[in-house]
């Protein structure tokens, strides 16, 4: 494991980031628009509902935290897709860079960009909707974020593996897959709102526990630590599986020549 080589790939993506309109939009533009649209909608609904229900807080909390899953997944997968689109996989993997170093570099690049996304969302939600996420969730934030980051990386490693296996036709997953995860994550509604069969599926999604605890904290001012711990353990299990899946698909791609000619 070489920190220098990880740094090389982080530098590569930091060079690209400010130059690519699409990437800047992904980091700042889309999250801003989503927050604006849903924030305004919720403000309108709130003004027409009883004040005892902190609907805006619940919704904005869910919306902002869900952005961490989406942006983590999309940005990490895009770091890989950038190499595919640039036909650069051969250049980086004909160097001493290892698979693990590559994954770590995408995670670090992702964290750097997410810090900007988080700052922007925090400021905008505070400025426009007087919603201070730091004050509202306080000590709970790191426990929520670590779980959401892990879920984002797990899904992205799975997407990268799928692209290595199926080529360009799988790249759409990078944008679409979180839409499949979202309904079972119970971001904007409680687990009990789902039909029973869906509740049974949702129990396998670490994010469902995270958002349940987020709501419990808002309504009751307390959390069930064991739920967050369980979500973390579930994430760790899936992380190991997703890394194994990526590694296996990578070796298959190396064997079938897709690492040098992915199409």
């Amino acid at each position: 494991m070489s920190i220098r080589r990880i740094l090389a790939m982080v530098i590569r993506h930091m060079y690209l980031w400010p130059k690519s309109f699409e990437r800047l939009m992904g980091t700042l533009g889309w999250p801003f628009l989503e927050l604006t649209i849903w924030g305004l909608t919720m403000s309108y609904l709130q003004s027409n509902l009883m004040n005892s229900v902190s609907l805006v807080t619940v919704f904005l909390g869910g919306l902002i935290f869900w952005q961490f899953v989406t942006r983590t997944e999309v940005e990490t997968a895009l770091n890989f897709l950038e190499e595919v689109w640039n036909k650069n996989l051969i250049n980086i993997f004909a160097s001493p860079l290892t698979k693990a170093e590559f994954l770590i570099s995408t995670v670090i690049s992702n964290l750097i960009k997410l810090s900007f996304t988080a700052s922007m969302l925090t400021l905008v939600s505070w400025f426009f909707y007087q919603f201070n996420i730091l004050k509202t969730f306080g000590f709970l934030i790191p426990f929520i974020l670590i779980n959401l980051f892990l879920t984002g990386w797990i899904v992205s490693f799975f997407v990268i593996g799928m692209v290595l296996r199926f080529g360009y036709k799988a790249q759409e997953l990078a944008w679409a897959i979180t839409l499949l995860v979202q309904p079972f994550s119970c971001v904007f509604y409680p687990l009990s709102a789902l039909p029973t069969w869906a509740q049974n599926i949702a129990k396998f999604f670490p994010t469902s526990y995270v958002f349940e605890e987020m709501r419990r904290f808002l309504y009751e001012g307390s959390i069930n630590k064991s739920n967050l711990l369980f979500a973390f353990l579930l994430n760790l299990t899936y992380l190991i599986i997703s890394i194994w899946f990526f590694s296996m698909m990578f070796e298959k791609a190396r064997e079938h020549g897709r690492l040098v000619k992915l199409n």
Binding site: R5, M9, I11, R12, Y15, L16, K19, S20, K87, S95
Partner: peptide, 19 residues
């Protein structure tokens, strides 16, 4: 093969040097 097309010549050589 190609090198990342949005990066400048200098940036490409710099990041590669770290590998």
């Amino acid at each position: 093969t190609q090198l990342p097309w949005l990066l400048t010549v200098e940036e490409n050589l710099t990041y590669t040097s770290y590998l």
